[in-house]
Amino acid sequence: MELWVIATIAAAAVQTVRFMLQKRLKGIGLSTGGATFSRFLFAVPLACLGVAVLVGLNGYSIPPLGLRFWAFAVAGGIGQIIATFCTVALFSERSFAVGIAFTKTETVQVALFSAVFLAEAVSGLGVVAILIGLAGVLLLSRPPQGWIAGKILNRATVLGLLAGAFFGISAIGYRGATLEIANDDPLFRAMLALACVTAFQSVAMALWLRWREAGEVTRVLGAWRATLPVGVTGVLGSLGWFTAFALQNAAYVRSVGQVELIFSLLVSMLVFGERPKRREVAGMGLLAVSIIMIVVLAA
Rank of each mutant, 00 (worst) to 15 (best):
L30V: 09
A71W: 07
S123R: 13
G34E: 03
A7C: 13
Y60N: 07
A73C: 10
N58G: 10
S31D: 06
S123P: 04
L112R: 06
P63V: 12
P45R: 05
G33S: 14
T107L: 15
G79E: 01
L65W: 03
L112F: 10
F69V: 00
G34Y: 00
S61I: 09
C86I: 05
R24P: 04
F42H: 10
I9E: 12
G34F: 01
F37G: 03
I81N: 01
L41P: 01
I78H: 08
L65Y: 05
T107H: 11
L54N: 06
Q109G: 08
I81Q: 02
T32C: 05
V108W: 12
F85R: 05
L21E: 04
Q22T: 06
A115Y: 04
S92Y: 02
T103P: 00
S95I: 14
V88S: 01
L54G: 08
V74S: 00
F72K: 00
R18I: 01
A111S: 12
A97F: 09
G99T: 14
Q80E: 12
A75W: 01
N58Y: 15
K26M: 13
G77D: 01
L46M: 15
L30G: 02
G33M: 13
F91I: 07
G79H: 02
V17C: 15
P63G: 07
R39P: 03
P63C: 09
E120Q: 15
T103G: 10
T105W: 04
L41F: 13
A101K: 02
L112V: 15
V110N: 13
F40N: 05
L67I: 09
I78K: 03
F40S: 06
I62E: 01
A12C: 12
L65I: 04
S31A: 07
A115R: 03
C86L: 12
F40L: 12
E120Y: 08
G59R: 08
V74T: 03
L49P: 09
V5I: 14
S38L: 11
R18H: 11
L57I: 11
T105H: 06
Q109C: 09
A11T: 03
V116K: 06
K23Y: 06
R68P: 00
G29Y: 09
A7F: 10
G27E: 15
T36D: 08
T103A: 14
E93G: 10
E106F: 02
V55E: 12
R94H: 04
W70E: 02
V14E: 03
T32D: 13
